[in-house]
């Protein structure tokens, strides 16, 4: 079996008496989409926060590219190649779509302490940023401030920003949230291709998309992973049906 890109072992996090993450272990293998599903309050976001570095686990380890990243903050993990999108679009509202992506390109080049050269005429930033916008189909809206983009466009921009980081793994927190059926289908197709670039840990409520995309699915309930397997395994797992899928499966 290939070496996992991301390996989480026995991660624990409590808020008072609530065990939000209760001994979670999971791996993300090269080239796969590993979906993380679970009912509301299962601790999916808490888990994503710990992986990305915005929340410190109580115990357990997170290894990324064979390296323990427990001591790195969010910016440090991002620099290592952990590309993240947010559940609620988190962009620079005043910056245009292009400048949002340019900032990510700049971060990837590791060059934020340059004080004199104007960025708007810096082809080293504008060209790769424009290419990313084209990939997600936002090139026509490059000059529009993020605050004025539609909800769906902001989701696309989130993806473009994550792409621009050239990450070694993607961490997508409900990328389809609030998208219409057409947008969801387009994004599903997009993510399907994207896994060849870097594996994706996908938290998603859109079950149609999850079952269409995921190589493996892990089901999180009350901070524990109750099952991991292929889409078929999960559909047929009695515990999962009881705990989560219920009548909808």
């Amino acid at each position: 079996m290939a070496e996992p890109v991301l390996e989480i072992s026995d991660l624990r996090k409590s808020f008072g008496a609530l065990k939000a993450t209760d001994g979670v272990s999971l791996t993300l293998l090269p080239g796969e989409i590993h979906a993380l599903i679970g009912p509301n309050g299962a601790g999916k976001s808490t888990l994503i926060h710990q992986i990305s570095g915005s929340l410190k686990p109580d115990s357990g380890s997170i290894r990324f590219l064979g390296r323990d990243v427990g001591g790195l903050d969010m910016a440090g993990r991002a620099r290592l190649g952990l590309g993240r999108s947010f559940q609620i679009s988190s962009l620079m509202p005043e910056f245009s779509a292009l400048r949002n992506v340019m900032l990510a390109v700049q971060a990837r080049q590791g060059s934020s302490f340059r004080f004199l050269r104007p960025v708007t005429s810096d082809a080293g930033l504008t060209e790769p940023a424009m290419a990313m916008l084209e990939r997600v189909g936002l090139a026509g809206r490059a000059g529009v401030p993020a605050a004025e983009l539609s909800h769906g466009e902001r989701r696309q921009l989130e993806i473009a920003v994550a792409l621009a980081l050239g990450p070694k793994a993607f961490l997508f927190d409900e990328p389809m949230a609030g998208m219409g059926p057409e947008g969801s289908r387009a994004l599903t197709k997009f993510l399907d291709d994207l896994r060849r670039e870097a594996p994706i840990l996908l938290v998603e409520h859109d079950m149609e998309a999850v079952f269409a995309l995921a190589d493996r699915i892990s089901v999180l309930v009350y901070g524990r992973i109750v099952a991991t397997g292929t889409a078929d395994d999960i559909r047929n797992d009695p515990e999962v049906r009881r705990a989560y899928l219920g009548e909808t499966a």
Binding site: R79, F86, E94, F95, R99, R117, V119
Partner: peptide, 21 residues
């Protein structure tokens, strides 16, 4: 400049800025 872009980013959304590294 690039510094200015990062600085204005820190004003608008510091979490996003950290998330890009």
């Amino acid at each position: 400049s690039r510094f200015g872009a990062a600085l204005e980013g820190a004003r608008q959304n510091p979490v996003r800025l950290a998330a890009v590294g």
